[in-house]
């Protein structure tokens, strides 16, 4: 058994060294408590719902979320709005459909099965409207940035006056956590920018936390099931390992060699 322990330790340490080498140059991100971290991590529903509000009222003017559908908002493990609420949300957007029997495209209110309406028709249009910078699609953003949720949270709160030695062009802003410290998005959040429908006070930090939680969910919509299944699988594997261990001992007791 000592040998096995050694092997396991070796495997884990090799992998940790590798991980370390990937994350060697991470910056110190702002710290906040995430409910979705850890073995039993779950999303905070209220935070997700507020996060969706921040998305629609603040981000959606420039950032698309092309892989999300309205139905996702009602699905288990997400913001879990009621189906009725989501129908109302969806119906407040217009989507292009068609052609109809006259061969014409037409606009209609969105349905549950429709994808989130995009702010721009294509990447070029979004660039043209934003001074040449493409506001990235946010569906998987939380997985597409090193540091994930911590990075996004820090970035949203990381706007600051530039140090004296950095000169910024028009439409470029200083951000402590952005790669190269220059960002083309102006500080998106300010206190009381929006009014939360659940009455929570809309501080910068609160909004940053809510939208980050929402983005984490949109990147990993099955995180809760994953954590739950993972726990069961690992408990099962441990039990089976113990059973197989005793079976093995029993079988090998017929020869005098130790296992």
């Amino acid at each position: 058994m000592k040998k096995i322990a050694n092997i396991l330790i070796l495997i884990i340490s090799i992998l940790l060294i590798q991980n370390h080498s990937f994350s060697a140059e991470t910056h110190k991100f702002l710290k906040t408590e995430w409910t979705f971290k850890g073995l039993f991590g779950k999303y905070d529903r209220a935070s997700l719902q507020r996060g969706y509000q921040v998305y629609t009222e603040v981000c959606a003017a420039c950032h698309s979320m092309q892989y999300l559908s309205y139905r996702n908002l009602a699905e288990p493990g997400g913001p879990e709005f009621s189906e009725q609420e989501v129908k109302v949300i969806a119906a407040s957007f217009e989507v292009l459909d068609g052609p109809n029997s006259d061969g014409e495209m037409f606009m209609r209110p969105a349905k549950l099965s429709d994808k989130f309406v995009m702010p721009y028709d294509n990447v070029e249009a979004s660039k043209a409207a934003n001074g040449g910078a493409y506001p990235p699609d946010m569906s998987v953003l939380a997985k597409a940035r090193k540091g994930g949720a911590d990075y996004i949270y820090s970035l949203l709160l990381g706007y600051d006056d530039p140090p004296a030695d950095i000169k910024l062009d028009d439409g470029v802003y200083y951000n402590k956590y952005m790669y190269g410290n220059k960002i083309k998005m102006s500080a998106p959040l300010s206190d009381d920018l929006i009014e939360y429908s659940d009455g929570t006070k809309a501080t910068k930090e609160q909004m940053a936390k809510d939208i980050t939680t929402f983005l984490m969910w949109s990147a990993e919509p099955h995180l809760e099931t994953r954590h739950k299944t993972g726990f069961r699988v690992i408990v099962y594997l441990i039990i089976l390992s113990i059973l197989v261990y005793f079976t093995m001992k029993k079988i090998w007791s017929r020869v005098e060699t130790k296992v």
Binding site: Y236, I239, L240, L243, F246, T247, K250
Partner: peptide, 16 residues
């Protein structure tokens, strides 16, 4: 005992 541990292991394995 031998039979029990073998059966239990095989059953648990099959479930998995």
């Amino acid at each position: 005992r031998r039979d029990f541990i073998f059966t239990a292991t095989a059953a648990a394995g099959a479930v998995g």
